[in-house]
Design a protein around this nucleic acid. Structure first.
Lengths: 148, 148
DNA sequence: AACTGATCCTTGAGTGCTCAAGTATCTGCT
DNA sequence: AGCAGATACTTGAGCACTCAAGGATCAGTT
Protein backbone atom coordinates (compact mmCIF):
# COMPACT_ATOMS: atom_id res chain seq x y z
CA UNK A 1 0.00 0.00 0.00
CA UNK A 2 2.47 2.62 1.11
CA UNK A 3 4.94 0.90 -1.22
CA UNK A 4 2.44 1.15 -4.01
CA UNK A 5 2.04 4.84 -3.48
CA UNK A 6 5.80 5.36 -3.39
CA UNK A 7 6.34 3.69 -6.75
CA UNK A 8 3.50 5.82 -8.10
CA UNK A 9 5.30 8.93 -6.97
CA UNK A 10 8.52 7.90 -8.67
CA UNK A 11 6.64 7.05 -11.81
CA UNK A 12 4.95 10.43 -11.70
CA UNK A 13 8.30 12.12 -11.22
CA UNK A 14 9.68 10.41 -14.31
CA UNK A 15 6.69 11.38 -16.43
CA UNK A 16 7.06 14.86 -15.06
CA UNK A 17 10.56 15.27 -16.40
CA UNK A 18 9.69 13.49 -19.64
CA UNK A 19 6.77 15.82 -20.29
CA UNK A 20 8.69 18.88 -19.23
CA UNK A 21 11.59 18.08 -21.53
CA UNK A 22 9.21 17.88 -24.46
CA UNK A 23 7.39 21.10 -23.60
CA UNK A 24 10.54 23.10 -22.98
CA UNK A 25 12.02 21.93 -26.27
CA UNK A 26 8.95 23.02 -28.16
CA UNK A 27 8.74 26.42 -26.52
CA UNK A 28 12.45 26.95 -26.96
CA UNK A 29 12.41 26.02 -30.63
CA UNK A 30 9.60 28.44 -31.53
CA UNK A 31 10.85 31.37 -29.44
CA UNK A 32 14.39 30.98 -30.75
CA UNK A 33 13.29 30.78 -34.37
CA UNK A 34 10.77 33.58 -34.26
CA UNK A 35 12.52 36.00 -31.91
CA UNK A 36 16.08 34.80 -31.46
CA UNK A 37 15.60 34.43 -27.70
CA UNK A 38 15.59 31.17 -25.76
CA UNK A 39 12.82 29.98 -23.48
CA UNK A 40 14.92 30.59 -20.39
CA UNK A 41 15.73 34.15 -21.46
CA UNK A 42 12.05 34.69 -22.14
CA UNK A 43 11.27 33.61 -18.60
CA UNK A 44 13.62 36.26 -17.29
CA UNK A 45 12.01 38.96 -19.42
CA UNK A 46 8.53 37.85 -18.37
CA UNK A 47 9.31 38.12 -14.68
CA UNK A 48 10.90 41.52 -15.12
CA UNK A 49 7.89 42.65 -17.13
CA UNK A 50 5.50 41.65 -14.36
CA UNK A 51 7.48 43.39 -11.62
CA UNK A 52 6.82 46.97 -10.41
CA UNK A 53 8.74 49.38 -12.65
CA UNK A 54 9.67 46.34 -14.73
CA UNK A 55 12.77 45.78 -12.67
CA UNK A 56 14.03 43.40 -10.01
CA UNK A 57 17.00 42.64 -7.84
CA UNK A 58 18.98 39.74 -9.18
CA UNK A 59 18.46 37.74 -6.03
CA UNK A 60 14.68 38.05 -6.24
CA UNK A 61 14.77 37.10 -9.89
CA UNK A 62 16.69 33.95 -8.99
CA UNK A 63 14.14 33.07 -6.34
CA UNK A 64 11.25 33.66 -8.73
CA UNK A 65 12.80 31.46 -11.42
CA UNK A 66 14.03 28.74 -9.09
CA UNK A 67 17.63 29.32 -10.14
CA UNK A 68 20.81 30.24 -8.31
CA UNK A 69 22.15 33.79 -8.29
CA UNK A 70 24.93 32.54 -10.49
CA UNK A 71 22.54 31.32 -13.14
CA UNK A 72 20.82 34.70 -13.20
CA UNK A 73 24.11 36.53 -13.69
CA UNK A 74 24.95 34.31 -16.66
CA UNK A 75 21.53 34.64 -18.20
CA UNK A 76 21.37 38.39 -17.83
CA UNK A 77 24.75 38.96 -19.51
CA UNK A 78 23.63 38.44 -23.12
CA UNK A 79 20.34 40.27 -22.51
CA UNK A 80 22.24 43.35 -21.33
CA UNK A 81 24.63 43.12 -24.24
CA UNK A 82 21.83 43.15 -26.81
CA UNK A 83 20.04 45.99 -25.04
CA UNK A 84 16.95 44.25 -23.72
CA UNK A 85 17.87 44.73 -20.08
CA UNK A 86 19.66 47.51 -18.23
CA UNK A 87 21.78 47.39 -15.12
CA UNK A 88 20.72 49.83 -12.41
CA UNK A 89 22.19 50.61 -9.02
CA UNK A 90 20.42 50.96 -5.74
CA UNK A 91 21.33 54.29 -4.13
CA UNK A 92 20.85 52.88 -0.62
CA UNK A 93 22.66 49.57 -0.98
CA UNK A 94 25.75 49.34 -3.12
CA UNK A 95 25.64 45.55 -3.17
CA UNK A 96 22.48 45.26 -5.20
CA UNK A 97 22.28 45.61 -8.94
CA UNK A 98 18.80 45.79 -10.41
CA UNK A 99 17.96 44.26 -13.76
CA UNK A 100 15.51 46.54 -15.57
CA UNK A 101 13.69 46.06 -18.86
CA UNK A 102 14.59 48.62 -21.53
CA UNK A 103 12.01 50.06 -23.92
CA UNK A 104 13.12 47.56 -26.61
CA UNK A 105 12.93 44.82 -24.03
CA UNK A 106 9.34 45.68 -23.19
CA UNK A 107 8.37 45.74 -26.86
CA UNK A 108 9.99 42.41 -27.61
CA UNK A 109 8.41 40.87 -24.55
CA UNK A 110 4.94 41.74 -25.82
CA UNK A 111 5.59 40.03 -29.14
CA UNK A 112 7.16 36.99 -27.54
CA UNK A 113 4.31 36.58 -25.12
CA UNK A 114 1.90 36.18 -28.00
CA UNK A 115 4.04 33.43 -29.52
CA UNK A 116 4.53 31.69 -26.19
CA UNK A 117 0.83 31.71 -25.36
CA UNK A 118 0.09 30.21 -28.72
CA UNK A 119 2.68 27.44 -28.34
CA UNK A 120 1.70 26.61 -24.77
CA UNK A 121 -1.95 26.48 -25.70
CA UNK A 122 -1.28 24.23 -28.70
CA UNK A 123 0.88 21.96 -26.63
CA UNK A 124 -1.65 21.31 -23.87
CA UNK A 125 -4.76 21.20 -26.00
CA UNK A 126 -4.51 17.84 -27.80
CA UNK A 127 -4.11 15.85 -24.58
CA UNK A 128 -5.86 18.03 -22.00
CA UNK A 129 -9.22 19.76 -21.83
CA UNK A 130 -9.39 23.32 -20.56
CA UNK A 131 -10.59 22.05 -17.21
CA UNK A 132 -7.71 19.64 -17.02
CA UNK A 133 -5.21 22.40 -17.74
CA UNK A 134 -6.74 24.33 -14.86
CA UNK A 135 -6.37 21.32 -12.55
CA UNK A 136 -2.81 20.83 -13.66
CA UNK A 137 -2.07 24.50 -13.12
CA UNK A 138 -3.38 24.38 -9.58
CA UNK A 139 -1.38 21.27 -8.68
CA UNK A 140 1.78 22.65 -10.21
CA UNK A 141 1.28 25.92 -8.42
CA UNK A 142 1.16 24.13 -5.08
CA UNK A 143 4.24 22.09 -5.91
CA UNK A 144 6.22 25.05 -7.22
CA UNK A 145 5.32 27.07 -4.15
CA UNK A 146 6.38 24.48 -1.61
CA UNK A 147 9.39 23.62 -3.71
CA UNK A 148 11.62 25.70 -1.51
CA UNK B 1 -12.32 33.77 -23.71
CA UNK B 2 -9.90 32.05 -26.02
CA UNK B 3 -7.38 34.69 -24.97
CA UNK B 4 -8.07 33.87 -21.35
CA UNK B 5 -7.39 30.21 -21.94
CA UNK B 6 -4.16 30.99 -23.81
CA UNK B 7 -2.74 33.03 -20.93
CA UNK B 8 -3.71 30.19 -18.61
CA UNK B 9 -1.71 27.79 -20.71
CA UNK B 10 1.37 29.97 -20.63
CA UNK B 11 1.00 30.40 -16.91
CA UNK B 12 0.71 26.66 -16.50
CA UNK B 13 3.81 26.16 -18.64
CA UNK B 14 5.80 28.49 -16.40
CA UNK B 15 4.65 26.75 -13.24
CA UNK B 16 5.49 23.51 -14.92
CA UNK B 17 9.12 24.44 -15.41
CA UNK B 18 9.32 26.07 -11.97
CA UNK B 19 8.02 22.95 -10.25
CA UNK B 20 10.13 20.65 -12.36
CA UNK B 21 13.31 22.56 -11.61
CA UNK B 22 12.66 22.21 -7.89
CA UNK B 23 11.85 18.51 -8.10
CA UNK B 24 14.81 17.63 -10.28
CA UNK B 25 17.16 19.51 -7.98
CA UNK B 26 15.91 17.63 -4.96
CA UNK B 27 16.11 14.23 -6.60
CA UNK B 28 19.52 15.02 -7.99
CA UNK B 29 20.89 16.18 -4.65
CA UNK B 30 19.82 13.06 -2.77
CA UNK B 31 20.86 10.56 -5.43
CA UNK B 32 24.24 12.24 -5.89
CA UNK B 33 24.94 12.38 -2.18
CA UNK B 34 23.77 8.90 -1.31
CA UNK B 35 24.93 6.99 -4.40
CA UNK B 36 27.22 9.28 -6.37
CA UNK B 37 24.97 9.11 -9.42
CA UNK B 38 22.98 12.01 -10.88
CA UNK B 39 19.25 12.00 -11.50
CA UNK B 40 19.74 11.84 -15.26
CA UNK B 41 22.08 8.86 -14.96
CA UNK B 42 19.55 7.20 -12.69
CA UNK B 43 16.90 7.63 -15.34
CA UNK B 44 19.11 5.80 -17.82
CA UNK B 45 19.67 2.93 -15.39
CA UNK B 46 15.97 2.73 -14.60
CA UNK B 47 14.96 2.39 -18.23
CA UNK B 48 17.60 -0.24 -18.84
CA UNK B 49 16.46 -2.13 -15.76
CA UNK B 50 12.87 -2.21 -16.99
CA UNK B 51 13.80 -3.44 -20.48
CA UNK B 52 13.88 -7.12 -21.49
CA UNK B 53 17.29 -8.58 -20.63
CA UNK B 54 18.03 -5.20 -18.98
CA UNK B 55 19.42 -3.85 -22.21
CA UNK B 56 18.41 -1.44 -24.96
CA UNK B 57 19.56 0.05 -28.20
CA UNK B 58 20.84 3.55 -27.72
CA UNK B 59 18.28 4.96 -30.09
CA UNK B 60 15.39 3.45 -28.14
CA UNK B 61 16.86 4.72 -24.92
CA UNK B 62 16.98 8.23 -26.37
CA UNK B 63 13.35 7.98 -27.43
CA UNK B 64 12.30 6.70 -24.02
CA UNK B 65 14.10 9.51 -22.23
CA UNK B 66 13.11 12.27 -24.62
CA UNK B 67 16.74 13.01 -25.45
CA UNK B 68 18.81 13.02 -28.61
CA UNK B 69 21.06 10.11 -29.52
CA UNK B 70 23.96 12.41 -28.82
CA UNK B 71 22.82 13.01 -25.27
CA UNK B 72 22.58 9.28 -24.65
CA UNK B 73 26.11 8.68 -25.91
CA UNK B 74 27.43 11.32 -23.53
CA UNK B 75 25.48 10.04 -20.58
CA UNK B 76 26.42 6.41 -21.14
CA UNK B 77 30.16 7.15 -21.29
CA UNK B 78 30.77 7.60 -17.55
CA UNK B 79 28.39 4.74 -16.67
CA UNK B 80 30.42 2.37 -18.86
CA UNK B 81 33.66 3.63 -17.39
CA UNK B 82 32.59 2.92 -13.81
CA UNK B 83 31.25 -0.51 -14.75
CA UNK B 84 27.50 -0.02 -14.32
CA UNK B 85 26.70 -0.50 -18.00
CA UNK B 86 28.22 -2.69 -20.68
CA UNK B 87 28.45 -2.16 -24.39
CA UNK B 88 27.16 -5.08 -26.46
CA UNK B 89 27.06 -5.65 -30.19
CA UNK B 90 24.19 -6.87 -32.28
CA UNK B 91 25.32 -9.87 -34.37
CA UNK B 92 22.82 -9.04 -37.14
CA UNK B 93 23.34 -5.29 -37.39
CA UNK B 94 26.79 -3.83 -36.93
CA UNK B 95 25.42 -0.31 -36.57
CA UNK B 96 23.69 -0.86 -33.29
CA UNK B 97 25.42 -0.92 -29.92
CA UNK B 98 23.31 -2.08 -27.01
CA UNK B 99 23.67 -0.61 -23.57
CA UNK B 100 23.27 -3.40 -21.00
CA UNK B 101 23.17 -3.25 -17.22
CA UNK B 102 26.00 -5.12 -15.49
CA UNK B 103 25.49 -7.09 -12.30
CA UNK B 104 26.81 -4.16 -10.26
CA UNK B 105 24.54 -1.86 -12.22
CA UNK B 106 21.49 -3.93 -11.34
CA UNK B 107 22.43 -3.98 -7.67
CA UNK B 108 22.99 -0.24 -7.51
CA UNK B 109 19.76 0.40 -9.34
CA UNK B 110 17.80 -1.45 -6.67
CA UNK B 111 19.30 0.68 -3.92
CA UNK B 112 18.83 3.90 -5.82
CA UNK B 113 15.23 3.12 -6.60
CA UNK B 114 14.47 2.94 -2.89
CA UNK B 115 16.00 6.38 -2.34
CA UNK B 116 14.26 7.87 -5.36
CA UNK B 117 10.86 6.53 -4.36
CA UNK B 118 11.31 8.00 -0.93
CA UNK B 119 12.32 11.42 -2.25
CA UNK B 120 9.58 11.54 -4.87
CA UNK B 121 6.97 10.53 -2.34
CA UNK B 122 8.16 13.12 0.18
CA UNK B 123 8.20 15.78 -2.47
CA UNK B 124 4.63 15.30 -3.66
CA UNK B 125 3.05 14.55 -0.32
CA UNK B 126 2.96 17.93 1.44
CA UNK B 127 1.12 19.63 -1.43
CA UNK B 128 -0.76 16.76 -3.07
CA UNK B 129 -3.01 13.99 -1.80
CA UNK B 130 -2.54 10.48 -3.16
CA UNK B 131 -5.51 10.98 -5.44
CA UNK B 132 -4.05 14.20 -6.75
CA UNK B 133 -0.75 12.52 -7.50
CA UNK B 134 -2.69 9.93 -9.50
CA UNK B 135 -4.48 12.67 -11.44
CA UNK B 136 -1.21 14.44 -12.08
CA UNK B 137 0.38 11.22 -13.23
CA UNK B 138 -2.38 10.58 -15.73
CA UNK B 139 -2.22 14.09 -17.17
CA UNK B 140 1.55 14.00 -17.41
CA UNK B 141 1.41 10.60 -19.05
CA UNK B 142 -0.85 11.96 -21.77
CA UNK B 143 1.36 14.98 -22.29
CA UNK B 144 4.59 12.98 -22.32
CA UNK B 145 3.10 10.52 -24.77
CA UNK B 146 1.90 13.09 -27.26
CA UNK B 147 5.04 15.10 -26.74
CA UNK B 148 6.52 13.73 -29.89
C1' DA C 1 26.66 -6.08 -57.92
C1' DA C 2 26.56 -1.24 -57.49
C1' DC C 3 24.06 3.16 -56.18
C1' DT C 4 20.65 5.71 -53.08
C1' DG C 5 18.84 6.76 -49.13
C1' DA C 6 17.74 5.73 -44.46
C1' DT C 7 19.41 4.39 -39.81
C1' DC C 8 22.75 4.12 -35.80
C1' DC C 9 26.08 6.13 -33.51
C1' DT C 10 29.93 9.49 -32.36
C1' DT C 11 32.30 13.96 -32.15
C1' DG C 12 33.31 19.25 -31.98
C1' DA C 13 31.46 23.42 -30.66
C1' DG C 14 28.37 25.86 -27.97
C1' DT C 15 24.39 26.79 -24.27
C1' DG C 16 22.53 26.99 -19.79
C1' DC C 17 22.84 25.87 -15.87
C1' DT C 18 25.46 24.12 -11.17
C1' DC C 19 28.72 24.46 -6.96
C1' DA C 20 32.53 26.47 -4.54
C1' DA C 21 35.17 30.22 -3.71
C1' DG C 22 36.04 35.10 -3.66
C1' DT C 23 34.91 40.32 -3.35
C1' DA C 24 32.23 43.99 -1.73
C1' DT C 25 29.00 45.88 1.12
C1' DC C 26 25.71 46.15 4.82
C1' DT C 27 23.78 45.25 9.78
C1' DG C 28 23.92 44.44 14.54
C1' DC C 29 26.48 43.70 18.84
C1' DT C 30 29.78 45.37 22.02
C1' DA D 1 34.26 52.88 16.34
C1' DG D 2 35.23 48.24 15.26
C1' DC D 3 34.54 43.50 14.44
C1' DA D 4 31.38 39.31 13.07
C1' DG D 5 28.32 37.54 10.38
C1' DA D 6 24.85 37.90 6.87
C1' DT D 7 23.71 39.32 2.14
C1' DA D 8 24.46 40.51 -3.04
C1' DC D 9 26.82 39.51 -6.68
C1' DT D 10 30.63 37.53 -9.86
C1' DT D 11 33.85 34.12 -11.56
C1' DG D 12 36.29 29.50 -12.70
C1' DA D 13 35.57 24.84 -13.43
C1' DG D 14 32.53 21.41 -14.65
C1' DC D 15 28.09 18.87 -16.02
C1' DA D 16 24.25 17.71 -19.09
C1' DC D 17 22.53 18.53 -22.61
C1' DT D 18 21.92 20.58 -27.81
C1' DC D 19 22.75 20.95 -33.06
C1' DA D 20 25.39 20.07 -37.15
C1' DA D 21 28.44 17.28 -39.40
C1' DG D 22 30.54 12.89 -40.40
C1' DG D 23 31.48 7.73 -40.57
C1' DA D 24 29.79 3.21 -40.84
C1' DT D 25 26.39 -0.06 -41.99
C1' DC D 26 22.05 -1.69 -43.77
C1' DA D 27 17.80 -2.25 -47.05
C1' DG D 28 15.60 -1.54 -51.38
C1' DT D 29 15.90 -0.60 -56.42
C1' DT D 30 17.63 -1.35 -60.75
Amino acid sequence: MSTRSATDSLDTALRFTRAHTAMAKRLDAVLSNRHGISYSDFQILLHLGAAPNTRMRRVDLAEALGLTASGVTRGLGPLERIGLVDREKDPRDARVAYAALTETGRALLVEMTVSAQEVASDWFTPSCSTAEVATLSALLGALAGSGR
